[in-house]
Design a binder for these strands. Structure first.
Lengths: 159, 159
DNA sequence: GTATCCCTACTCGGATAATTCTTGTCCGAGTAGAGGAGG
DNA sequence: CCTCCTCTACTCGGACAAGAATTATCCGAGTAGGGATAC
């Protein structure tokens, strides 16, 4: 059980987009070069973020991606679920209703204890990620790096 | 991102094994018929539980699987991690060290904020599952079902 | 009647194919900006 | 000098292969129990 790499890529990319000057769009190519990632495949998770309403995309020269809303309103959970999907990792197959000891559907109207507890754990995981916003992510990065990113963006705007 | 089906199978199977009379071994075939599962493939996750020390296996007639320890000492987390592995779903690839904006290893001695928070969420998930034992699982099943399981095991012992 | 031996049949364990999902890649549609021509 | 038009080049989006992990399956090694036999 492992998350796709797109999760890490998008968490870092969104944090980087939050550091861009207001109104500036960052292209897929710039993101790929910034982190040394395979550029074509970045399209897949980026598109997922656009569909989820986290990013907006614009075409043409000086086009690219930018945040759709305020960084303090975007949680890490939003990003992770936009890439990985909202489906929980554990999906009850109701095996208690099958086999020689199969239970009648009448008895199984309430979810079984296994499914309930796995769901509780999943909600605990979600709550942990929902408590962190993109602003928190940016604040956690060392100031020297943020300064360098700012200078990098400024150079791109002028050049 | 989805758990393998073996997780659900083993959670139910261990709960069922906990209801068996002391010393009685339940074979793979009985488990498969009980839940209507593909019998040959049950071997894989069952073997994982044996390797993890949760179950013990015995060969020959009247052989099968039984709990290795007391049900109150076996947590749900033990079972899930025995089947799925202990590797966390998010593994930091340190992309901040790559690309044109790659950071020097000296700056990256402390894990990045993304990895730290994903790990916190994973630990919250583990803590939730660690708080539930097999005894809790059995107690959560309706009494009528437990009685039927007990009668079923008794019939198997005599017949 | 009892103890011993053998044999059958049932068990788990590892090695082996088919399928689904993630990963990686390519090319086409669309658009904004730059440059040149005309007024 | 200003405005309009065209053209270029850069962008995203969807469709297309390759590899890996999960799912599913088979057959062989080992063992415990039952039955027959000898004492």
């Amino acid at each position: 059980m492992r998350f796709s790499q797109g999760v890490e890529w998008m968490l870092h990319s969104v944090a980087l987009l939050a550091q861009a000057p207001a109104g500036m769009a960052v292209s897929r190519r710039v993101l790929a070069e910034h982190y040394g990632l395979p550029e074509p495949y970045l399209a897949k998770p980026l598109k997922a973020l656009v569909r989820a309403g986290i990013l907006t995309a614009s075409s043409g020269p000086s086009g690219g991606f930018r945040l759709a809303g305020r960084p303090e309103d975007i949680t890490v959970l939003d990003i992770v679920e936009a890439v990985e999907g909202t489906s929980p990792p554990f999906i009850c197959q109701e095996i208690r209703q099958q086999g020689t000891a199969g239970l009648s559907p009448a008895v199984c109207q309430k979810p079984c204890a296994v499914a309930t507890m796995m769901d509780h754990a999943h909600q605990a995981w979600r709550a942990s990620l929902r408590g962190i916003t993109v602003v928190d992510l940016v604040k956690s990065t060392p100031k020297a790096i943020r300064d360098r990113n700012r200078a990098d963006f400024a150079a791109r705007l002028s050049g």
